[in-house]
Each structure stands twice: as C-alpha cells, then as structure tokens.
C-alpha cells in the first residue's frame, strides 16, 4: 500500500515542462489594480505570484506549462487547492473585493501573443463586466450555512403530531404477526410522507429566513451528514458585512431547536457568486 502511494507521488512530480516550457499562465483571481505587490503569499507548489495589470484591473498569476494540473493523489490535490485559496483570500483581504477563478484556469499563448498579452486582451475586452462584478461584491463575503436534522428526533415529532400514525401504532400492537407486518408497512409509508412534507416545509421557511439576511443565496445539493444527522439545506450565502450578525443569529436560533443543528462557516471570498 505504501508503495502505491509513493509511486503516485512520483507521478505527480513528473509534470513535463518540455513542450513550450512555461508559456502558460495559471490565473488565481482578478481584482482592481491597486498596486501594493502580490499579497505576499506564494502560490501552488510554492510558486511566486505575479500580477498582470491592465488599466483598472489586475490578475494574479504564475507562469506554468500549457497543461492542466492533474493528479489522483488527494494529498497533492489538497495542497494545490489550499494554495489557490490562500492567494485568493490574501488578494481579497488586500483589495476588498475579488473575482476568484475556478481552479485550473490556465491561459495559453494565442495567435502570436504571449499568454500575458492574451490575458491583457481578455481583460480589456471584459473590463466593463469585470468591474461591475467587482463593485457588486465589495463589502460582501460568502458564508456556508448548512442545516441538519436528526431523523430519529424529527420522526418522533412527526409521529406524535399525526393522529393517523398514532392510531396505526396502537392497532399494530393488537394484530397477529402477518397483519402486523402490513400495518407496519403502512406506518412506515405514513411516516415517510410526513417527514417529506415536514422537510419541504422547513426548507421553504429556513430558506426564506436565510435569504432575508443575504444578498444572494446559492443552493447546493445536500451532502451526507455526520453521526446520524441528515443535511436538509446546503446553502452558500453572499452576505454584506452588516448582516453577518443577523445570519449568525438565525444559525443560533435554529441550533436551539430540538433535532436541528447548523454548521455556519465563513467568511470565504465570493467563490459561489461570480
């Protein structure tokens, strides 16, 4: 097993630099051209980060071969992703607004232009739209707001609130085995429907409460929860500085409800809102 891993690592390092050397540019993020250097952090694999500046915009980059970063090694992936994030976050703190680029955005030389010139041309072409986005994101941050419930606790609540479930539960006690099985099936179906209805209702209400605190909300598919918890809502929220406390209060209030918990994490640069 150990050999597998070290082999994997050897393959990772072997990113050929042959064809074209480092004619490409890995782009981390775009922001306003403010001067003041490149945020003082190193990039992926310790690379020094440069700024490509064009008029009012700058892009943080490092030179790289004209091919994507790829690996099957999670440890290497984690270090790349953390490095990308480190640069974006430092830029965000320095600039007050940023457009993070998706991982593995690599510019290649195009039509006789170097990658840097191709990037400048793109910045010029997109200047208006990019500036508008940067302005819209100023003073705002992204927060993750994930709501979980405990299906055992909620299931009990649903059962207690439903006269039909209660009646069936009582009847099932007095039935012979064969019939009791059928009753139990009906009971499960009833409970499942009750919980689905409850989930839909909670999601609508919670989404509404969260959305009132946020400029924008990005809904992701719920992930699997931990320790018996089920994720009900997986939201990313773009929140103005002045509204963070309100959103935190929502998280607080919800966590105080029986059977519910919230994971409220941030701030992140606005990855989900550009």
């Amino acid at each position: 097993m150990m050999e597998d891993r070290s082999q994997g690592q050897v393959q990772e390092q072997a990113r050929p630099e042959g064809a074209g050397g480092e004619a490409g540019l890995y782009v981390y993020c775009i922001g306003p051209a403010l001067g003041g250097g490149c945020c003082g952090v190193t990039g992926i694999e310790g690379r020094e980060v440069d700024a490509v500046v064009h008029r009012g915009l700058s892009a943080l980059v490092h030179p790289c071969p004209v091919q994507p970063y790829q690996t099957a090694n999670l440890e290497v992936t984690a270090s790349w992703v953390q490095a990308h994030h480190r640069v974006v976050e430092a830029a965000w703190k320095q600039w007050g607004t940023v457009l993070p680029l998706s991982f593995n955005t690599i510019i290649r030389p195009e039509g006789g232009l170097s990658a840097a010139d191709a990037l400048r041309m793109w910045l010029e072409h997109e200047e208006g739209a990019l500036q508008a986005k940067l302005d819209a994101l100023r003073g705002k941050a992204e927060y993750s707001f994930q709501v979980f419930w405990d299906p055992v606790v909620i299931g009990r609540q649903v059962a207690e609130a439903s006269p039909d479930v209660k009646r069936l539960e009582e009847e099932v006690q007095s039935k012979p085995r064969g019939l009791a099985y059928m009753y139990r099936q009906r009971l499960e179906k009833l409970l499942r429907e009750g919980m689905e209805a409850r989930a839909a209702q909670e999601c609508r209400e919670l989404y509404g409460r969260v959305a009132r605190c946020a400029e924008r909300v990005h809904v992701s598919r719920p992930k699997e929860g931990q320790e018996g918890q089920v994720m009900l809502l997986n939201l990313s929220c773009l929140v103005s500085t002045g509204m963070v406390a309100a959103l935190e209060a929502e998280a607080d209030g919800l966590s105080g409800r029986e059977g519910f918990s919230v994971r409220f994490v941030g701030p992140f640069p606005p990855y989900s809102f550009c």
Binding site: G24, V27, I30, V66, Q67, P68, T77, A78, V81, Q82, H84, H85, V88, L99, P100, L101, S102, F103, N104, T105, I106, I107, R108, E110, A115, A118, L119, M121, W122, E142, S144, H218, S220, S236, R263, F264, V265, G266, F268, Y271, S272, C274
Partner: peptide, 28 residues
C-alpha cells in the same frame, strides 16, 4: 464547536465554483 472551514468546504468552492473564464485562450 466547528467554525473552521474544512478541506471539503474549500474543495467545493475552489474546484467547482469560481469564475469560469470562458474564452479560447484558456486551456481548460
């Protein structure tokens, strides 16, 4: 108790979101 961003929070965002530079100068 768990206010820290985890690696999964970062992977979700850095790998799957962020601005997609939709131009033919991009290799991805």
């Amino acid at each position: 108790g768990a206010p820290q961003a985890t690696l999964v929070d970062l992977l979700d965002r850095v790998l799957e979101r962020g601005l997609v530079l939709d131009a033919d100068i991009v290799i991805c």
